[in-house]
Design a protein around this nucleic acid. Structure first.
Lengths: 169, 169
DNA sequence: TAGCTGAGTATGGAAAAGTAAACTCAGATG
DNA sequence: CATCTGAGTTTACTTTTCCATACTCAGCTA
């Protein structure tokens, strides 16, 4: 333990327990995708749905919530609206994923993988993911910039540039 | 499109839109970690907290919810209880992560990474993750069994062994 | 034995989510 | 011009979840 940490702890302040968690990146991400339905909507976009009626049909989600979640995802830049036109119909909006949305895929793959491992039906998963190039199964894993596969216990979490203590109450 | 899919679609059934989503692994995982506070509790366990009062102090989460979430995580096998004893105090329970909980780390890293990229404070993230071995920054990525790095657009999702259509309403 | 502490449980109100149905709106069709 | 359709919005009601606070309980200490 370094001297600063020790001095803080003498004052009853523990940087781990008294840090400000409001700017935590996990919490920040959950502000966007932490509500009910949001991740499931992204899953469906990922599987190829794009229309309001698609989401309603496959998710069985209430229309008012669906409408609110789609609007929020568009505002956040995770989805974007385009228009499509069926012959004989007018143009209607559809929802497509943006690069910012694509960057959520590793997180969603992580959830998928855990469910596959621990909560799948006896016969296996409902869906499989494979690499279009080689056909091999795909999964989320942790790597470092040096390219090493990293075991969770070998991840060291240290205060970053925006670390701060929670203001005294 | 294969013949089966085509025949189904002629009958007004689209496997993508009419599949049963109740056994989706993402939905199944969210049943465990999709409630408010759950992932944040895991984050704190990951950062080193283990006591009820630790979680309460750092998260500011209502005690009844904290109690309910901890109990659920223990029931699910994501956390386990042990006891600790401060000198001069009686034994009290503490919460430690299990291998099943460690397997959620890739998903949580995925969320962390997205927040770092899109929702961090101007000066950067509040916490940094690095590889204990080499000190390099760590991130979640998608790989196939052949060891190739996989771009999200190269993931092909296909029906798996537990795929089924939603029962007609 | 009264008080203290950590770890909860209980409770009552507020907010969010779920459900269902009616309504709107614009353009294509009959 | 009335009707249909997809994509919503609005409203009204029920249920669930969340939050804050008060209370309990078991063992240690004075």
């Amino acid at each position: 333990m370094d001297a600063t940490t020790e001095a803080l702890q003498d004052a009853g302040v523990d940087p781990r327990l008294d840090r400000d968690t409001s700017n935590c990146s996990i919490a920040r991400t959950l502000e966007v995708v932490g509500e009910k339905w949001t991740i499931l909507i992204l899953r469906e976009v990922w599987y190829g749905s794009s229309r309001f009626s698609d989401f309603e049909r496959v998710l069985g989600c209430p229309r008012n919530l669906l409408s609110a979640r789609l609007r929020m995802l568009v505002e956040e830049g995770v989805l974007a609206t385009e228009t499509y036109k069926e012959p004989g119909s007018r143009s209607r909006p559809k929802y497509v994923i943006t690069p910012k949305g694509v960057d959520l895929v590793p997180a969603v793959m992580g959830l998928l993988q855990w469910g596959d491992r621990y909560r799948a039906d006896p016969e296996g998963p409902a869906m499989l993911s494979r690499h279009r190039g080689c056909g091999a199964r795909v999964d989320a894993q942790i790597r470092c910039d040096q390219g090493h596969a990293v075991q969770p216990e070998d991840i060291e979490s240290i205060p970053g540039p925006a670390f701060r203590l929670r203001p005294a109450e």
